[in-house]
């Protein structure tokens, strides 16, 4: 058996096993690790097909950025508070299984019925060689034939970014920019100086309050609001 066939089956086997691991493992962080492994093996398959650029982009974008953020979120969540993935909810499981089977059938029918088997597209080896390689060929197609789709995707992503920023903003933006220049530090008397923050007093002139006066200070502007009741953490309630 030639080497590349062996390597391909190795990659494919690990990839499928990792994909199974994503679904089967009960710990969401383990699922994410399996997904990383799966993406890596898909990148390996891309390399074997001569699409090195695609493989590297796959690793940079999916493994290096998106999954890092997924892990970021998973690590902040208490695992006990997650919904149960592997038990209960019989209707959801039945619907999910049905949809999965339908999707698989669709793909199978599409593959079996396609008419382009054995036909050469525009991207022949010679055509790619003439522009200097896969990366160059991809760039040319992306920025000429598919420019419109490319720009639309950019626009959608920009909208997403703006949306995320808007969601993360405090409710009254103008006030905050006008009055605050430093971060709030609960350990520092000036950090909880509500009067200075509210009235927009310059940093140098802000009076440093005694600890006992911190929360009794008059508030003329935006007040510091704690997101949660402190008693929630101590269980004193």
């Amino acid at each position: 058996m030639p080497w590349d066939v062996i390597v391909f089956y190795l990659l494919a086997a690990v990839c499928i096993a990792a994909a199974l691991g994503v679904v089967v493992s009960s710990n969401p962080v383990h699922s994410a690790i399996f997904l990383v492994l799966c993406f890596f093996n898909v990148a390996g398959v891309f390399v074997m097909m001569g699409a090195e650029f695609l493989a590297v982009i796959q690793v940079i974008v999916y493994t290096g950025a998106i999954l890092v953020l997924v892990l970021f979120v998973l690590m902040l969540v208490n695992p006990d508070e997650l919904p149960e993935f592997h038990q209960g909810r019989p209707i959801q499981r039945a619907v999910a299984g049905l949809l999965g089977i339908i999707l698989m059938l669709e793909i199978a029918i599409a593959i079996l019925n396609r008419e382009v088997i054995g036909q050469q597209g525009a991207a022949t080896a010679a055509a790619i060689e003439s522009v200097g390689g896969n990366t160059q060929a991809l760039g040319r197609v992306l920025y000429s034939d598919y420019l419109f789709a490319f720009e639309v995707i950019s626009l959608v992503l920009t909208v997403g970014v703006i949306g995320a920023i808007v969601l993360a903003l405090p409710e009254r933006l103008g006030e905050r920019i006008g009055t605050r220049r430093d971060t709030i530090s609960l350990g520092h008397p000036r950090g909880t100086d509500a009067a200075a923050i509210g009235a927009g007093v310059a940093r140098e002139q802000a009076p440093i309050l005694e600890t006992r006066d911190r929360f009794a200070a008059p508030t003329t502007g935006r007040r510091l609001v704690m997101t949660k009741d402190p008693d929630e953490y101590t269980g004193a309630k």
Partner: peptide, 16 residues
């Protein structure tokens, strides 16, 4: 032929 991107990809995986 994508050597420079390879270094970037590998260093982005290192954070795991």
């Amino acid at each position: 032929n994508i050597g420079a991107l390879f270094v970037l990809a590998i260093s982005s995986v290192g954070v795991y």
